[in-house]
Simulated assay, not measured.
Amino acid sequence: MKREESDAEGNGSMVEEFILLGFSDLPELQGLLSVVLVTMYITILVGNSLLIIITMFDPVLQKPMYFFLANLSSLEICYVSVTLPKILANIWTQDRRISLLGCATQMYFFLILAGNESLLLAVMSYDRYVAICHPLRYPMLMNTTKCVWLAAGALLSGLPVPTGLTCTIFSLNFCKSNHINHYFCDVRPVLTLACGDTSVPELSIYAAFMVFADVPFMLILASYSKILSSILRFPTAQGRGKAFSTCSSHLMAVLLFYGSASITYLRPKSSHSAELDKWLSLFYIVVTPMLNPMIYSLRNREVIEALRKLLP
């Protein structure tokens, strides 16, 4: 280990693996963290899998909104599985090493899935816009073919930027250390280990965030401004309440995802704290995927009824 650290400091090309420090500075909490993270991981897998199953087999849920919800649940399972198993393995074995290729692969898939989720949330807001603002044209505008194309478009659109960003970062030499002060290969903790000028990767991070966060978020705001305007024109309070209830779950998911990611990635570099970033990233890595199934099921009568049929 010491030889690898000195090699890393002396010659960036010699770095063949990193050490994920994670929460190694809290040895007394390792057992508790393990139990909490395993519990959360099981909750994420079970909750999102149940949503996928009921949307596939319950005839009442054969609607575009639930098709996109099933896609979101699939993404959440993949998203958390990119990072959490490695975190748990590091805690259990205390072997915190990860190869250079493994680190790049983890970062690549993490960025792809995070970008895909952001774009899918924008697609879901468009679905709600069409459903509320153009209800008579909804079956035609959101037919099965178009829903598949929208979901596929969100996935494929998320490929180029993470590819370029990951290649840009891992084309650098790492000479400061091979210790990553994080529990997975996130962009900023890895970039802090690079030697030389990192202004281009830094700009790439902000550009990627604009593509995958700012633009979709603006589209979501535009959709909901139209939705709100339409809802306020509904003649009855019951109609307005029903329309609001169909959007509230999605809005809560949007706020959870974009809020935590924005705080982590858009803070000025001077105000970044490695310890704070670790705890904040836990929120969008684990907490959000765990809460989303609860948000969509507890606030949706159709989902609750479908779950009752599945779990008598």
Rank of each mutant, 00 (worst) to 15 (best):
E17K: 15
A253T: 04
M65V: 13
A243G: 00
K86T: 15
L311V: 10
S99V: 02
F212R: 01
V60S: 12
N71M: 13
E28N: 09
I231W: 00
V161N: 07
L159H: 05
E5G: 02
P201T: 07
I54C: 03
L120I: 02
G31F: 09
I132E: 11
F174E: 02
A274Y: 07
V190C: 10
M65P: 06
I285S: 08
L32M: 14
Y66D: 00
F217P: 04
M107D: 08
H272E: 15
I112S: 02
L155D: 01
F217N: 06
L136W: 09
Y224K: 02
R188C: 09
K269T: 12
R267N: 05
K278T: 08
R301S: 12
C133L: 01
A253W: 05
S118T: 07
F184T: 02
A152W: 09
P162Q: 04
C133Y: 04
M107Y: 04
K86L: 14
L280R: 07
C175S: 12
V46D: 03
I263F: 11
S245F: 05
Y126R: 13
Y296C: 02
A122Q: 03
S262M: 11
P64C: 07
D277Y: 03
P235N: 03
S249M: 02
A222G: 08
I285V: 10
L191W: 06
C167R: 15
P216Q: 07
L191V: 02
P59T: 05
L72I: 00
M294E: 04
D277F: 06
H134M: 15
Q106F: 03
R137A: 15
K269Q: 13
P139K: 04
L45D: 00
S13T: 11
F209C: 11
M40T: 14
F23L: 15
T93Y: 13
W149M: 13
L61R: 00
W92D: 14
D277Q: 02
Y206I: 14
T163D: 05
L32P: 08
S204P: 05
K242M: 12
I91G: 04
S260T: 12
L307K: 07
E117V: 10
V190T: 10
I295N: 01
Y224M: 09
S248V: 14
T192F: 06
M294N: 09
I205T: 09
Y41E: 07
N292K: 06
M290P: 00
L191G: 00
Q62T: 05
M1Q: 13
P289G: 01
V46F: 06
D214F: 14
P312I: 08
I263K: 07
V161R: 08
M56S: 08
T264Y: 10
Q238C: 13
I169D: 01
A274M: 10
H182D: 05
V161Q: 07
M210S: 13
N300P: 04
L156A: 06
H179Y: 11
I77A: 01
C147Y: 06
M14A: 15
N292F: 00
A70E: 04
N178G: 00
C195F: 03
L159E: 01
K242D: 15
R188G: 10
F283C: 10
R308G: 11
L101H: 07
A274D: 11
F170G: 01
V187F: 04
V287Q: 03
M14T: 11
A131L: 14
G10R: 13
A194Q: 02
I205D: 05
V161T: 03
